[in-house]
Computed example of a mutant assay.
Amino acid sequence: MSGQGEMFDALTCDPLDLIERGGEVIADKSRWPQRLVDLYDVLFAYARKTGADAETAARDASARAVLIADYLGGAVVYLPRGDAMRKAVRDSEAYRRHDGRNTNVLAREYGMTTTKFYELLARERKRRLRKMQGRLFQ
């Protein structure tokens, strides 16, 4: 299996089945679609970077890759990258952290003026309302 269009089937492979070879723990990914292997590799590298040992990193990466595959599997999914994605994540986090009394603190923390921060809040509020309500009146 090497195509991205293939669906991951947890019934035909056990991604949590770790194999130890020469003291190195790796996940048996031989039957995984290539995109899932790529995702696992990124998750494994991140876990190692944050200090996890190889076995813990492999188990964590496998479990997270399967979780994502179960959630997104079978669908054609666009994942944004770069500045637009980072800005969207930043805006969502800022909105979530805002409690009405910490505007100035958060504006400084995110490197923007209070006015720009209020604009960010308005955009994010509008986006969330549109998501909840749909476009009823357009």
Rank of each mutant, 00 (worst) to 15 (best):
K116G: 09
C13L: 15
V76F: 12
S92G: 11
G51I: 02
D83Y: 05
A122Y: 08
V25P: 00
N104Y: 09
D70V: 12
V42P: 00
Q4M: 08
D9C: 13
T114D: 12
D53Q: 04
R123A: 12
E24A: 11
R101S: 10
D9T: 10
T12R: 14
R59V: 02
E93T: 06
D70F: 12
L136G: 02
V105I: 06
R21V: 15
D14C: 12
P33T: 09
D28I: 11
E124T: 13
D83W: 03
R31L: 11
L16R: 14
A54S: 07
L16V: 10
A27S: 13
A57T: 06
L18H: 07
V89D: 04
R135I: 04
L39H: 02
L11R: 15
R96H: 05
A57Y: 05
G74W: 15
R128P: 01
D91S: 09
L39Q: 04
N102T: 02
R135G: 05
R31E: 12
T50G: 00
Y40H: 13
K131C: 02
D91H: 11
K87Y: 02
G134N: 05
Q133W: 03
F117E: 06
R64I: 06
L129D: 08
F137W: 12
D9N: 15
L79N: 10
R101Q: 08
A107F: 02
A57V: 06
T114L: 07
K131Q: 10
S30N: 13
I19V: 15
D83Q: 07
K49N: 05
R64Q: 14
G134C: 04
N104W: 06
Y110W: 15
F8S: 02
Q133C: 02
Y71V: 13
R96W: 03
A65D: 05
G111Y: 10
A27D: 05
L106Q: 01
Y40C: 00
G74S: 14
L106H: 01
L67S: 14
L106A: 04
P80N: 04
F137M: 08
V37R: 14
F137T: 10
M85W: 04
S92Y: 04
D53L: 03
V25M: 13
D60C: 05
Q4P: 04
N102V: 03
A84V: 13
M7T: 15
R90V: 00
A61Y: 08
L39V: 05
